[in-house]
Simulated assay, not measured.
Amino acid sequence: MQERPEPTFAPGLSARVELTVTDADTAQAVGSGDVPVLGTPRVLALAEAATVAATATVMPAGMTTVGLRVELDHRAPTPVGRTVRAQARLATVDGRRLLFEVRVTDGEDTVADGRVERVLVDRQRFVERASRGA
């Protein structure tokens, strides 16, 4: 089996995604609390979406990244109806490991910040392995 060459991702790659908070995004709805504000799992999902978007345009065919580790400080509540923006910037590349710095904002206010580490994998092999339960 021929090994696929590993792509080169350069620190500085970045992307921004946004979300207008709905009732479905609240802590009450996602089961992470009992308050009607943006739930931490949705904040994390938005931050991860920004990391995926940051590498999307340079991702080689057949490859993808998967989440490995997350450090996230959820600092401020966001009510339904507000729009939050997640910015991810690739800070460090260590072989197949990609470390992103992430920040989620509501206007000028920081809602959350932290780091997301992802690892580059062969998509098909990863899915096959997951299907086998390995």
Rank of each mutant, 00 (worst) to 15 (best):
R75W: 04
R132F: 03
R42P: 02
L38K: 00
L44Y: 06
Q28W: 06
D23E: 15
V35K: 06
V52G: 07
S14N: 10
D113A: 06
E48S: 03
R115D: 08
P77V: 03
V111M: 09
R132N: 12
T55M: 04
F100C: 00
R96Y: 00
F100H: 10
A91N: 09
F100M: 01
R4F: 11
T55H: 04
V127C: 01
V35F: 12
M59F: 05
T83V: 05
T78I: 07
A27I: 06
D94L: 01
E48Y: 03
P41G: 06
R118A: 03
R69T: 05
E71Q: 14
G107D: 12
M1N: 07
D113R: 10
E3L: 14
A49K: 09
L99M: 09
R75I: 10
V111N: 09
G12T: 08
G31T: 12
V84S: 05
V52K: 01
A112Y: 01
T57W: 09
P11D: 12
V80G: 02
V37P: 04
T64G: 03
R103C: 11
R42V: 14
P5L: 07
R75S: 14
E3S: 13
A56T: 10
G39P: 07
E6L: 15
A15W: 02
R89D: 11
M1R: 11
V93D: 04
G62M: 06
Q28A: 13
E101I: 11
A53F: 01
T110Y: 07
E101G: 12
R89L: 07
M1F: 03
Q124W: 01
G67L: 05
T22V: 01
T57I: 08
A47F: 06
T105A: 13
T65L: 02
G107E: 07
S14E: 14
M59Y: 10
F100S: 02
R69F: 00
A29H: 06
S32C: 12
R132D: 11
S14D: 11
R4P: 01
G107R: 11
V52S: 11
D113Q: 12
R16Q: 15
A76K: 09
M63N: 05
L72D: 11
T92C: 04
R85W: 12
G33S: 10
V58F: 03
P41K: 05
R96F: 00
E6N: 10
E18V: 00
H74T: 14
D113Y: 09
Q28Y: 08
A130W: 02
V102Y: 01
A24T: 10
G39C: 05
R16D: 15
T8L: 13
V35R: 12
T20Q: 13
V84Q: 06
G67Q: 04
R16S: 15
A49I: 05
L19W: 07
G95M: 02
V116I: 15
E128L: 12
G31V: 13
M63I: 04
S14T: 15
L90C: 09
P36I: 02
V35W: 08
P5G: 10
G67Y: 07
R82L: 10
E71I: 06
V111Y: 08
T78N: 07
E117K: 00
L68Q: 07
A50D: 11
D106L: 14
Q87A: 14
T8R: 13
R97M: 02
A47I: 06
V121G: 01
A24C: 03
A27M: 11
D73H: 15
D122R: 04
T55G: 04
V30N: 12
R82W: 08
